[in-house]
């Protein structure tokens, strides 16, 4: 049981990192990675949403969609859940942690369209995880996202101060370095022996 959860965690964080090997959630990964502190905030917010979303979607899938044989509706149902969750979190943050709410700004409602969140919900079902496994996969997938975006933000902050060829300035060099980082994460593929 515990080894199983450990395998799932390791897979979600390193081997099958949502950004670097599944290429999910690239939009906020490129958009919010210019500064370390916003990247951190975004990472935590996404982790939180992914954890909650995988728990709620698993419950809805197992106890509502499957008994009524409506599994083909899962994408619509999941998007409904995720959108409501993000809305709820937005209101919650505005009331309780206004500083974080302001720091995240427009990117908070944009978590709705983060495909890593929908991805984790879908993958939970595809991989046939039970409730606990889904929850762990959601949390660790989010942590994987957090690690990726923080690593990338530090790389980009360094690139800022570098003299890079005119043609590569800004977005192109960011895409290139994202590719190189992703290559580095390919090294974790060997860990699949578990």
């Amino acid at each position: 049981m515990l080894t199983n959860l450990f395998t799932i965690s390791l897979g979600a964080i390193l081997v099958e990192n949502f950004i670097f090997s599944q290429f999910l959630g690239i939009c906020p990964f490129m958009g919010v990675s210019k500064k370390m502190d916003t990247a951190l905030g975004m990472g935590f917010a996404v982790t939180f949403v992914m954890a909650l979303a995988s728990a709620v979607t698993w419950l809805i899938y197992t106890y509502v969609l499957v008994p009524l044989s409506l599994t083909y509706m899962q994408i619509i149902a999941f998007i409904l859940v995720i959108a409501s969750l993000v809305q709820f979190i937005e209101m919650f943050l505005q009331k309780t942690i206004p500083s974080l709410y302001q720091a995240l700004g427009i990117y908070l409602p944009l978590i709705t369209t983060n495909c890593a969140v929908l991805g984790v919900a879908q993958l939970n079902i595809q991989n046939g995880y039970n409730f606990l496994e889904s929850l762990v996969y959601g949390v660790t997938g989010g942590i994987g996202f957090l690690i990726a975006i923080v690593l990338f933000a530090s790389v980009r902050e360094r690139i800022e101060g570098c003299d890079c060829p005119k043609a590569f300035e800004g977005f192109p060099i960011a895409l290139l370095s994202a590719g190189l980082l992703s290559l580095a994460f390919m090294g974790f593929q060997g860990l699949k022996i578990f």
Binding site: I60, V64, L65, L68, L70, M73, I76, A77, L80, V81, S84, Q87, F88, M91, F92, Q94, K95, T96
Partner: peptide, 21 residues
């Protein structure tokens, strides 16, 4: 099912917006 789910989430959000106003 989708109607009920949508309605339920809408209701929760409406209540939440009152609580977290």
């Amino acid at each position: 099912v989708l109607g009920i789910m949508g309605g339920f989430f809408g209701l929760v959000l409406a209540i939440a917006s009152k609580i977290f106003y």
